[in-house]
C-alpha cells in the first residue's frame, strides 16, 4: 500500500518489504478473507509497501506553500534525493533552496523503523556539518503542517494495523486502515488511511493527536505512474483542523534510478550537495 510515506518517502527514503509476506498479500488482493481486522490491515499495508519496492533511488523537487488563518502565505523549496535501503529505513538527502537564507543547507538522514534516526545537517553559513541527536520527529517540518514523521519513509514495522472497512473516495474503491504508531515519541495516537484497491495509493489520511482528536487531514491529487510501476502524486494538501493552517506540497522533476550511490549519502557528500 502506498502510504503517505510512500509518496513522500519516494523523496526522502525508500522502503524494503520482506518478501515473505507476498503470499498473504496475494490472498488479500483476491479478496479471500479469513483473517482478523488486524491481520487484514497488516496485509494491506504490506501489499502497498511491496508494490512500491525496487525503485532503487529517486529525486524530485518539492515546493511547499504554507498558509495561516490570516491568509498569509509562504513558500519553501527543497530538493530530495532518496536511496532505497534493504532491511532498514531509507537514506535521504534534503537540500534546501528557499527561503534564500537557508539555500545550500543540506540534511541527511538514515531512517530506522524503530529508534531514533541518524541525522546530520550541513550549515553553509557555519561551513560545518553538525550531527543532530534528537528523537523528536513530531514537530513541524520547516514550519509546515507536515511533521518530519509525516515525511519520513514508510516502514511496515512502524505501526500496528487494523482494517476498518471499505469506502468510495474520489470515485475509487478504498481500503480504510487504521495505523497505530509503535514509537512513543510519535505525535499521533492513530492515523486512518484510505488506499484505493486498484493501485494501493493513499488517497487520504486523517491524523489523530495524542488525545485522539482529529488533528490534520492529508489528501493526494494527480497521481502519475513512473517506470510503469511507481505511483507518485503531484500534489498533496495538509489541513490542520485545530489551527486552521494548511500546507500544500507540489512535486516536479521526478526521476527514478538516477544512479545515486551509497557514497552520495554521507557526511562529506552533504557539503557538496546541491
Amino acid at each position: 500500500m502506498l502510504f503517505i510515506k510512500n509518496t513522500l518517502k519516494a523523496h526522502l527514503s525508500k522502503q524494503v518489504l520482506p518478501v515473505v509476506l507476498l503470499v498473504s498479500t496475494f490472498t488479500i488482493s483476491f479478496g479471500v478473507v479469513a483473517e482478523t481486522p488486524e491481520e487484514q490491515g497488516l496485509a494491506i499495508s504490506k501489499e502497498a509497501k511491496n508494490r512500491d519496492k525496487g525503485w532503487q533511488d529517486n529525486s524530485a523537487n518539492m515546493r511547499m506553500v504554507l498558509r495561516n488563518k490570516q491568509g498569509e502565505e509562504s513558500v519553501r523549496e527543497i530538493v530530495t534525493k532518496t536511496l532505497e535501503v534493504e532491511n532498514d529505513g531509507d537514506k535521504a538527502l534534503t537540500i534546501f533552496n528557499q527561503p534564500r537564507d537557508v539555500k545550500g543547507t543540506a540534511f541527511l538522514s538514515f531512517s530506522h523503523p524503530v529508534g531514533p534516526d541518524d541525522q546530520w545537517l550541513y550549515l553553509p553559513a557555519l561551513k560545518r556539518v553538525k550531527r543532530i541527536s534528537s528523537s523528536n520527529k513530531s514537530g513541524p517540518f520547516m514550519g509546515t503542517e507536515f511533521s518530519f514523521e509525516d515525511l519520513s519513509s514508510f516502514e511496515v514495522e512502524k505501526y500496528t494495523y487494523k482494517y476498518i472497512g471499505d469506502e468510495t473516495l474520489n470515485g475509487l474503491d478504498n481500503f480504510v486502515v487504521e495505523q497505530y504508531p509503535v514509537d512513543e515519541n510519535s505525535g499521533y495516537t492513530r492515523r486512518i488511511v484510505w488506499l484505493d484497491k486498484d493501485e494501493y495509493r493513499i488517497q487520504k489520511t486523517d491524523f489523530y493527536d495524542r488525545k485522539n482528536s482529529l488533528l490534520k487531514t492529508l489528501t493526494f491529487q494527480d497521481y502519475q505512474q513512473y517506470l510503469s510501476k511507481y505511483w507518485r502524486a503531484n500534489k498533496a494538501e495538509m489541513i490542520n483542523h485545530q489551527t486552521g493552517k494548511s500546507t500544500t506540497l507540489e512535486w516536479t522533476n521526478y526521476a527514478f534510478k538516477t544512479g545515486l550511490q551509497d557514497a552520495d549519502f554521507n557526511r562529506n557528500a552533504l557539503k557538496r550537495a546541491k
Partner: peptide
C-alpha cells in the same frame, strides 16, 4: 543566513506542540 540555518536546525528537532509557530 546563520540565524536562518540555526532556526531551521532547531525547528526540525522539536517535538509536536513545542514548535516556534
Amino acid at each position: 543566513a546563520l540565524s536562518a540555518q540555526y532556526l531551521l536546525l532547531y525547528e526540525m528537532s522539536l517535538p509536536y506542540g513545542l514548535d516556534l509557530n
